[in-house]
Amino acid sequence: MDKIFFAELLVSVLIVAGGIFSLVGSFGLIKLKDLMTRLHAPTKATTLGVGSTLLASMVYFLVFESKISMHEILILLFLFLTAPITAHFVAKAYLLRHTDPQKDLPQTQRPHGWSTFDAPPASPTKPPSPKADG
């Protein structure tokens, strides 16, 4: 009886936390002033929101339906792998269209500039990073 109660409590807390984090992430999208600060809100707050919702679903099916459900882990892994990549792409698109590499950005402290603006060096002394050609 107590076990069921604690499972219910856990699922409820996780669902409520997920809802709150998703709401805060979307609220940050409205509240913050420019795109780069806005980018922080959905990449972090929303990821944890979805994460705790998925955990809630996993616990629920494990305890009340006695099924071990693995799809949630897959979705969670996929989201955690792809969130940085989408953030990186959105940031690059924003950099290209709305910033001036000389004025707004810090210097690379390297002979080459940032890859959104400069072509990679011609001699392949080192394989370019997979993100550099994005």
Binding site: I15, S22, L35, T46, V50, L54, E72, V90, A93, Y94
Partner: peptide, 29 residues
């Protein structure tokens, strides 16, 4: 104001839809 903002909003919407689908799955068991 910018196109990238709209892309970001769309991306966030997709993540929220995933959470919504999960909640619906719990509700319908």
């Amino acid at each position: 104001p910018t196109l990238t903002d709209r892309v970001l909003a769309g991306d966030t919407m997709v993540i929220n839809v995933i959470a919504l689908i999960m909640l619906y799955g719990i509700m319908e068991t």
